[in-house]
Every structure is written in C-alpha cells, then in structure tokens.
Design a binder for these strands. Structure first.
Lengths: 245, 245
DNA sequence: CGATCCATTGAAAGATGTCAAGCGTAGTGG
DNA sequence: CCACTACGCTTGACATCTTTCAATGGATCG
C-alpha cells in the first residue's frame, strides 16, 4: 500500500487508511517507542483490508499461520472448537489489541476468530515482521513483549474464571472492558457490550439465563444500569468489591 | 551461590550437571533441532543451581524479570496474588516445561512460582539468550514458539475451567498430566499428583471437599484408583467422555 | 509422642443449571 | 408500510450440583 493512498482517502471512517504513526491506537498495539523511520518501515508491511461483517471469520482453527492482526475497529471473539463440536470462547478482542499469536507454535492456528460486529484489522505478515526484526532489535523485543502480555492476560482470565460465583465473574469482565476502554480514551463507565449474553456466558462458563439474572440483580442493586447491550457502571467500588468476593 | 558450588557437587542425582545435549528432556524444552555447536553455546549460558525445597519460591510476583526457567525435575506451581491477598494458582509445571515468560511484558514477574516438591530448574538469563538469538535465528524462532505454546496452553486451561461440572474439570487435569507424562516417556496411566487437593481445588475453582468427593466418586465408579497422591487411570475412554460432558 | 496439616465424609444451605414460557427487537418478505 | 418470523433476552419454578460448616481419621514432621 502506498503512502499516498494512506494519506488521501479521508471520507469513510472505516476505509480511511491512517498509518501507524497517525493511528490513535498505536500506544496500545505499539507501546515501544520506535523511530519515525522505523514506524514507516513497519507501516509498509502492514495490510489493511476491507472490514469484516458481523459473523465473518478472520481465520479458522487449523488454518495455516501467516500473520498476526491488530484490531482497528469493532470487536472479535476467539474460540476453540472441541472434538465433540462445541465451542469455547477464549477471549474478546477490542481495538488496539493484537491476536493470532496462537498460530506460531505449530504454524497453524488453534483458534477461530469471528467478528462480533463490523470490524477492521491490520494484517501483519509474520515472515515480513521477522525479516524486519533482524534489523530492528527494538521491534523484536516489542513483539516478545506483546506475546508476554498475551500470556499474562490469559492468566488474568484464568484468575477470572476461578471466581466462585457468577456475580464476581461478570463484575470482572465489566471492569476489564472498562479498563480497556479507558486505555483507548473512551468512557470507562458507559459502553456497549459487543457480545451477546450467550457469548458472555460461554466465555465465563455460565448459562445465558444466569448471565441475564446477574445483570438484572446488579441493576436492581444499583451497581449498573443495563439497557440492551448498553451498560453503565454506577458503582465501580462496589463492583471491585464483588470481584474480590 | 558460588560457581564452584554449581560445578562441583556430582553425587546427588538432582545436582548432576547434565548438559542440554545429554538431557532427556531436550525434546520437550528444545524441540527445534539445533546444531551441536549451537546447543553447546546455549548450554554455556544456562545456570543450574541447587534444587529448591518444597515450598521454596523460585521467584515472586513483582520480582524483576531476568531469566526464564526450564524445569529439570520435580514440580512447581505458578500463582497470582490478588490485592486482597488471596492466591490464584494459574498453572502447574512439570519437567521439560518452561516458565517465567510472564515477566517479559513489563520486566517484572506477575506470578509467584513455588516448588511443590524438591525441584531443580535450569536458569536461562534472558539478556544472554537475546544476545545469542541475534546470531542464531533458529533459536530466536524457537523462543517465539515456546511463548506461543504457552499462550495456547493457557487457552486450553481457559477451556478446561469452563467445564460446568467438577467431574469434567478433574478428568481434564488428570488426562492433561497423563499426556504430559507420556511426552516425558513416563507412565500415562499411573502417576503421583505433585499437588495437594487444596492446590488442585484452587486451580480448578473448586473447594478441597469437592475435589475429594469427586476423587472418591470416580474411584467408586471404577474410572480411577486413588491412594493418597498416587493416581491410576483405569478407564481413560470414560474419563475422556467425562471431559466432553 | 504430640502437633499440625491434609484428606475424607456427612448434613444442610446456597447457587447455578434446566425446562418452560413470554416478551421485545431486528430483519424479511409481502 | 405492515405483518411475520426468528432470534436474543428475561423471568419463573424446580432439580441438581457445589459450597459451607462440622467432625473425624490419617499422614508427616519436629
């Protein structure tokens, strides 16, 4: 992709080809300080394709691993499919977050990734990234840190899932989303849940009914306000207490 | 600890200083084929210190990140400590497995690692590993794969924890340990559990009592035999069915 | 030998799952 | 534009599972 193309199209927000150095998310997906020239070199290998529609797959389990992806807009879910066919959601990915690193271990993806809403991603071909890393030790280090961050985040999820009761699990996800929103300079008290109750339940090891009941209960007790997918956190300290148990 | 201490003690099997190329675990922690010379170079940066006693910490959360570690013998648990002080076990590590990569993201470990029994580890200073990687692309790639494998394994755990009932969770861990044992050419049907019922419960999000009850029930139904920490899998197919639910 | 920790088991209480029904919303097609 | 349908969400009643509280026995370690 040429730099001209990146800097020209400005009309549609989704197809606007902002480069990494102008991207408001770069502090999240590129927290390491790279020289301007280096960012341009990274920029040059990134592919920005047309947005995924809700329900579309970015890739599926067993697809060959070629790239990692940074979420530009929208939201996606990653899921494992067991032998018996039932699906286990392993994570939700929001703008600025990087996914696909599960495929590196065996050159094959273990997860399927599906768009929860219209979403666009930056595709970063791994071979090119590796070539570039040889001459850019900072980038190399950064990528290792990204993977390490992925590990610690998965461990946070493990911690989350071992909460005994449904309320603390749900409070955990809500606070997690709030925190990630604040990193993106969005409201951390009011936001849209990108996923359905069913997906949330699948992720948390709860049934749809339990998720729904907990939402109602938290609302009745004045901790949150819920209207469809719109959630407002009314009492963050109380939610934090719930997480602790 | 002096270097003399490391290289002198040869009597005890735990302190025997076998190099990577002679180590029976190298197919697990070093699955990539490195040239003999390269293995020697890797070997030269690895530090093998005296074994940890049961309960000793390898490192604690918030310790500065300096190294990753390969388990040589014994077993260790990794745990997160919440603000309120309660601990959440995030994983158990057996011989051949590599840990400590959680510290790379912020140059600080997020987990504490504690020995479940007398254990010895190979310490691999990360700075040295990085230096070595510059001239050994294969090693570089291998390390990325190790981290990716860690990610996929954490996701497996996420899948495990979302099993609804206690029996399928416990069946999952038992089969996981069996599988990892077989990779180490040990019996995959009879083994010692390195962790207490309490630790297992903490990891699985269950109480000690529930773990104990499930063990008793599985034994009564002829799926396993339990005697203290000694476990024998009597009906692996049935256990596999339990996992599916 | 005593102390302590770990494991097991029982009974009762609490939480979540299951089954079922009803409601609202969004999307489709007439 | 309306009606119909499908889907997601909510709520209730009941069954099931896990936790909690309590007591006991066994193993380990000083």
């Amino acid at each position: 992709m040429s730099k001209n193309a990146q800097s020209s199209a400005k009309s549609c927000s989704n197809s606007k080809q902002v480069g990494c150095d102008d991207c408001s998310l770069n502090t999240i997906c590129m927290p390491v300080s790279l020289h301007v020239d280096d960012i341009d070199r990274l920029d040059s290998i990134i592919q920005r394709s047309k947005p995924l529609q809700k329900g579309e797959f970015l890739f599926r389990a067993n697809d060959p691993f070629t790239s990692v992806y940074a979420v530009r807009s929208g939201a996606l879910k990653t899921q494992l499919v067991a032998e018996n066919g039932d699906e286990q959601i392993t994570g939700f990915y929001l703008p600025g977050e990087v996914l696909g690193m599960d495929g590196l271990a065996n050159n094959t993806h273990t997860n399927s990734v599906q768009a929860l809403e219209t979403s666009s991603v930056c595709k970063i071909p791994f071979e090119r990234l590796e070539e570039l890393s040889v001459t850019l030790p900072t980038l190399q280090r950064h990528f290792l840190q990204l993977m390490s961050r992925e590990i610690t985040q998965e461990q946070q999820i493990v911690g989350l899932l071992n909460k005994k009761n449904a309320e603390s699990r749900i409070a955990s996800v809500l606070l997690s989303i709030a925190k990630r929103n604040s990193q993106r300079h969005l409201s951390e008290s009011a936001f849209m849940l990108p996923m359905s109750r069913k997906d949330l339940g699948n992720f948390l090891g709860l049934t749809t009914e339990t998720v729904s009941r907990v939402f109602s209960r938290l609302q009745k007790n004045g901790l949150i306000a819920v209207e469809q997918k719109q959630v407002t956190l009314l009492d963050t300290p109380a939610l934090t207490l719930l997480v602790a148990g």
